[in-house]
Design a protein around this nucleic acid. Structure first.
Lengths: 187, 187
DNA sequence: ACCTGAACACCGTTCAAGT
DNA sequence: ACCTGAACACCGTTCAAGT
């Protein structure tokens, strides 16, 4: 494995950096040093730093959202689908950190559109579950938004309250509480 | 008003920049230009850029959390206290953006401690309300965390779903739904 | 096809010198 | 007491030149 790097090499390395220290500390020069090439070579693969970040986020969209939705879509019973979604989402300590690093940047000119698209997909998916559970369309959508907001905030609280045991390792009572609160019988 | 600037001048200007474009794009040089002085003068007031950010966040802690809690603490009825808190928190389109810019940075070495302290204060305040409403201590705390997580996620969704009417201008039905969901009668 | 090396701009930080 | 101006380091970006 000589000094030749592929686009995917840069992309994967970038997503790792984003997850661990955030987008803003992603430095082309440092990445180049880690990969054992000069920063000049980076510009053969990408037009600029922004293009690298965009590439990393598209990869994140695919793995963290599209794949999960595709897997759960097949479950016919909406309550079972919701429960497995909560278990998957709140239990996935792998994707949580990336979500935390990105959630606040929906207004960003560059990555905002990607984040907006991902959040819309998530709200739509949960809204559909509530609709099947018997909510009116408007109520299902309100609850869909609240559910996704709760998910985002959950992983941010995990890092904001590092000494909280329940958050550190989401326990079953916590998920049960979420189910009880979120899936409250509709009007 | 000559070129002489106070520490508070720098602090206020910094919080404004943080709210509008985020911590990472806070540039000492640009701030200095805006204030009409050279960046060299900045280092007479502050030891470094980090000290400026810390000063801005302490100001944020005081105005956005301590002051609100102090105001609501006097309300004896816990249900009324909760409702007014939700109305205040979800209706405050002034402080929301700063929260969005900061919520994800709880792991940061510099500002993490401040954010952690603020989040803990908020969770404690809501936990107390649930306890007074009749929840067991453990359940009250779980619901306190969920409530704060929902608040954080709410303002992040606002920027992630800019075309969503309910989020753009939090309507009464939305707050009602929150009350109904969050303040569900305890076991 | 992919990389190096040198150049330039922008910004954080320091510090001697000014008023 | 507060500010300027020059200096240096780090990083994004460009590009001619190498293999």
């Amino acid at each position: 494995m000589g000094p030749t790097k592929t686009r995917q090499d840069w992309t994967s390395a970038a997503l790792g950096v984003i997850a661990s220290v955030g987008v803003e500390r992603l430095s082309v020069e440092r990445l180049a040093t880690e990969l054992g090439v000069t920063k000049g070579s980076f510009y053969w693969h990408f037009s600029d730093r922004a293009a690298l970040i965009e590439s990393a986020l598209l990869w994140w969209e695919e793995q963290g959202t599209d794949r999960v939705i595709a897997e759960l879509e097949g479950i016919a019973d909406p309550a079972a689908r919701l429960r497995l979604l909560l278990l998957t989402a709140f239990g996935d300590l792998e994707h949580g950190p990336v979500d935390v690093a990105l959630a606040a940047r929906g207004g960003d000119a560059l990555i905002g559109p990607i984040i907006q698209r991902v959040m819309a997909k998530r709200v739509d998916f949960v809204t559909e579950i509530f609709a099947e559970l018997g909510s009116t369309p408007a109520q299902a959508r309100r609850r869909g938004r609240i559910a996704v907001a709760t998910y985002i905030g959950h992983f941010q609280l995990r890092v904001a309250l590092p000494n909280d045991r329940y958050l550190a390792k989401p326990a079953k009572p916590y998920i049960d509480e979420l189910m009880e609160i979120i899936a409250v019988p509709s009007t």
